[in-house]
Nucleic acid binder design. Structure first.
Lengths: 260, 260
DNA sequence: GACTGCGTTTCGCGGTACGAAACGAGGTAC
DNA sequence: GTACCTCGTTTCGTACCGCGAAACGCAGTC
């Protein structure tokens, strides 16, 4: 679910202070361990004193921690706990486990389960075999250039789809023509087959296929994909063999989820 | 870091709305997948309309998701992403990895890395060998009855220590006499040896030893512990052999962290 | 010692978030 | 069908909470 700022001029239900605080937490990407007050202000576009108060609150609550020596903030242990709580409640992971393992065994490639986070896909589970290419758990890959991302966008309702594409265009205007073309192709692939491809445009020599899955109780789609060395996963094989097996996998997961 | 509510009569820096929103998120424990508005109101002690607005905001931001059919909320993918972001930034994990593996190999028991979350310890990494008893990653164990928890409390400065003990007393008044006695012993153990024990009082026939570690840049202590079958880890061995090795492990981790 | 960069604190105002009460939507009983 | 639950959302006026310009404090630098 692509999120955005407050907007909605007269949305009395929207609690600004809470949104801003969470925005501060989201500043901490994989690359940004320690962020100073000023940097947080720059990234969020909020005034310094505001950041000061929000960060103070977040620190008291354990979501941030403060280094006296650096005068900077980092994510705290409360964030970790919340993440694990959320992970533990994804029963898709349990349900999908044997089937993902099986597909990985069959293809000798790696199989991933991912959820969306803005313009990235967050890899939540990974299964692999032999020396194939591996994206570790916890990795993030771009929505724009991976099969995981394309499958996610393709599964969105039109309105949200447009919002995401607009955000990607704004984020990387230079790449937009290519990005746009690839997405149009991805939508056609999704229409025709039910899955999307990534053929070497995220990493050279890595091919992949991915398909979305809507969970019973709402929320955005999650995505399962299979990726590996290009010489092993040729486009034709992805379309004829791996892709259909991926769809079968999703079917199995769906019925496993329905069962209990 | 033990967190608490707003309080502080005139704390102008504390942003109440943000705190309340995060409090809502924290209602979702491992056992509570779907929570209704009313249940959230009960747990947080906030008025229904307030929860309504906070939950609306959190849903818009992707931290919660809403099931139309159940009329209930669950944690959303933003929580997962944040958790992974926080995990990825704990370089203690990388630093400690080989040493924890080594201790696990030596003891044939499992070795855990944990952080605190209120009255639980959140297990963040696990290494094990053979068929020994395993606490999986993502598990949570109580502070009150485990070596991990005791080591954490023992490492706290006196003021925080008192706060935590008071919270445990309030949470389980009936167990307090026992809990108190065990903690006093744990503090003596920590003074004398630098580590704390858990001898069958969390799970029968499971013994464990744990010691805290303060990270270079502030924040509460993290804890590393070793646990296994009681017949393998007799108290005497924990004190003479495993405990000292645990301290050596912590020393190694500290210097590995200082190195880079 | 003046200067610069950054974080925190002050403080009065504006508007936001609060919550009692009203409203609405399903569900159940009879 | 009506009356009666229960639970969630919306309304709305007020209290007060969070906002941010400006002032302050504190290091480091030249």
């Amino acid at each position: 679910m692509p999120t955005e700022g407050p907007k909605s001029p007269e949305d009395r239900k929207f609690v600004t202070a809470l949104s801003r605080g969470l925005e501060v937490l989201r500043c901490f990407g994989p690359r940004d361990r320690w962020l100073a007050n000023q940097e947080l202000a720059r990234r969020t576009g909020l005034a310094k004193p505001t950041i000061s108060r929000l960060a103070y609150t977040l620190t008291r609550l354990g979501h941030l921690r403060y280094s006296e020596t650096l005068n900077k903030y980092a994510l705290g242990s409360a964030a970790i706990s919340m993440g694990f709580a959320a992970l533990g409640q994804m029963d898709v992971r349990r349900a999908a486990r044997p089937f993902m393992q099986e597909l990985s065994d069959y293809t000798k490639a790696s199989v991933h389960l991912a959820v969306n986070d803005r313009l990235s896909m967050q890899v939540v589970d990974t299964y692999w075999n032999s020396a194939s290419f591996v994206i570790d758990i916890g990795s993030r890959v771009p929505v724009a250039t991976t099969s995981l991302g394309r499958a996610w966008v393709a599964a969105l309702p039109p309105a949200e789809r447009r919002r995401v594409l607009a955000a990607m265009r704004a984020a990387r205007p230079a790449d937009w023509p290519t990005t746009r073309r690839r997405f149009l192709q991805a939508f056609r692939d999704y229409q025709a087959h039910g899955f999307c491809f990534g053929l070497g445009d995220w990493r050279r020599e890595i091919n992949a296929v991915a398909a979305p899955l809507f969970l019973p109780n709402g929320g955005g789609p999650i995505v399962i994909g299979c990726s590996g060395a290009a010489f092993q996963l040729e486009p034709e094989r992805l379309k004829r063999d791996v892709g259909p097996r991926l769809l079968a996998l999703l079917g199995n997961v769906r019925s496993a989820l329905a069962r209990d």
